[in-house]
Simulated scan of single mutants.
Amino acid sequence: MTDWPAYAKGLLRAEMTRRGVSYADLVRMLAEGGVKETEANLRNKVSRGSFTAAFLFECLNAMGVKTLHLD
């Protein structure tokens, strides 16, 4: 059985690392797209892996992710 919250958290963190995006950067990028988050709230969400698929897609879109490899 897959731990989906851990998988989603790892996926988001990996994309942030690949692009050199900090939590503060991601908060700014999300705000540019109309998504209001604080850095502390974002860190908590990612740390717990407790976010919706829609939020994951908002983050990926804000970072400019166009392709994901899910292997």
Results as ranks from 00 to 15, higher is better:
Arg18Trp: 12
Trp4Pro: 04
Gly33Lys: 08
Glu15Thr: 00
Gly64Asn: 07
Lys36Ser: 15
Val21Tyr: 04
Cys59Glu: 02
Thr67Cys: 09
Met63Cys: 00
Val46Ser: 01
Asp71Ala: 15
Asn41Phe: 06
Ala24Met: 08
Phe57Cys: 10
Tyr23Asn: 15
Val27Ser: 04
Lys45Phe: 02
Glu32Gln: 12
Glu58Trp: 01
Thr67Glu: 15
Leu42Pro: 02
Lys66Asp: 03
Ala6Cys: 01
Asn44Ser: 13
Tyr23Met: 12
Met1Thr: 12
Met63Ser: 07
Phe55Met: 10
Gly20Ala: 04
Val35Tyr: 10
Ala40Gly: 09
Leu12Trp: 00
Val27Leu: 04
Arg18Leu: 08
Leu70His: 14
Gly10Asp: 04
Pro5Asn: 11
Leu56Asp: 03
Phe51Glu: 07
Thr38Cys: 06
Asn44Ala: 13
Glu58Lys: 06
Val65Glu: 02
Thr2Ala: 07
Met16Lys: 10
Ser22His: 11
Glu58Asp: 09
Met29Arg: 15
Thr2Val: 15
Leu42Lys: 02
Ala53Phe: 14
Leu70Asn: 08
Glu15Met: 03
Gly49Arg: 08
Leu30Val: 02
Val46Leu: 00
Phe57Glu: 02
Gly20Thr: 04
Leu12Val: 15
Asn61Met: 03
Met63Arg: 01
Leu11Ser: 06
Ser50Ile: 04
Gly64Ser: 07
Arg18Asn: 11
Leu42Val: 14
Ala24Tyr: 12
Ala62Met: 06
Cys59Trp: 06
Thr2Phe: 15
Ala31Glu: 11
Ala31Ile: 05
Ala6Met: 08
Arg18His: 06
Gly20Lys: 05
Met16Cys: 13
Ala31Arg: 07
Arg48Lys: 14
Ser47Ile: 00
Val21Pro: 06
Ala31Pro: 02
Ala24Asp: 15
Phe57Lys: 02
Ala14Met: 11
Leu56Thr: 00
Ala31His: 01
Thr2Tyr: 15
Asp25Ile: 02
Met1Asn: 11
Cys59Lys: 10
Ala6Gly: 06
Phe57Asn: 05
Phe57Leu: 14
Ser50Leu: 06
Tyr7His: 12
Gly64Ile: 04
Arg18Thr: 05
Tyr7Ser: 13
Ala53Gln: 09
Arg28Pro: 02
Thr38Lys: 08
Thr17Lys: 14
Gly34Cys: 09
